[in-house]
């Protein structure tokens, strides 16, 4: 563990907590893409299959349980509890255009042609594009609530911090995982446009409103 990875995990944790607070306090899921949350649930389920087979640390196990638990709770809030406030018309990204290519790529490019390894690779590739339905929804509605912007900033920062973690681990431990790094770079790049809007607008107290 290093400071970059710890900050990354804390940023990820913060993002999930911000999202839950937004939904619980406003009792609304307006502006939140249920499809992205379903993709995140798929990512965590696929990645944490080893939750019961390989023990890394208490921290690792607790975080995995928390991430899986909260993402399914988020889906429950979106599609059941606060279903009336879910804006399905604007959440229209065709996720099959993500899942099929990512699934195919996981078969072709992986570290080892073994079931668990291919599923892990699938979760890494899927995570790098899982935010697209959410960003697409914001571009369609033309604006994002400030709390949603904070959620996205924390979520985008988590993988950017992981990139720093991988640089550190390369020099400190000689650890290098090309698949995770490439997917992490793609994932972080997808947020750049949003990061620019967040820093130039939200930091000055303005709302994010894209030219619709």
């Amino acid at each position: 563990m290093n400071i970059f990875r710890l900050c990354g995990d804390m940023s990820h944790l913060a993002a999930i907590i911000i999202l839950l607070l937004k939904m619980w306090k406003t009792r609304s899921v307006a502006g939140i893409s249920g499809k992205s949350q379903i993709l995140f649930a798929t990512v965590f389920t696929a990645r944490y299959l080893d939750l019961f087979t390989s023990f890394i640390s208490i921290y690792n196990t607790c975080m995995k349980v928390f991430f899986i638990g909260t993402v399914y709770f988020t889906i429950y809030l979106i599609y059941m509890k606060f279903k009336a406030t879910y804006d399905s018309n604007h959440d229209s990204f065709r996720v099959e255009f993500l899942i099929v290519p990512v699934g195919g790529l996981a078969f072709l490019v992986n570290h080892e042609f073994a079931p668990l390894e291919i599923i892990w690779t699938f979760s890494i590739y899927l995570e790098s594009v899982a935010i697209l339905p959410q960003l697409f929804m914001i571009s369609k509605t033309g604006e994002a609530e400030t709390i949603t912007s904070h959620y996205l900033f924390a979520l985008g920062s988590y993988r950017a911090l992981y990139l720093c973690n991988w640089i550190y681990r390369y020099y400190a431990e000689g650890f290098f995982d090309l698949i995770a790094v490439v997917a992490g770079v793609v994932q972080t790049i997808l947020y750049c446009d949003f990061f620019y809007l967040y820093i130039t607008k939200v930091m000055k107290g303005k709302k994010i409103s894209l030219p619709a």
Binding site: D9, D50, I56, N60, H111, E112, E117, N165, F175, D177
Partner: peptide, 10 residues
Amino acid sequence: DEFVPRHDEL
């Protein structure tokens, strides 16, 4: 064969 990194990250 190629070293398969143990996935110790979240």
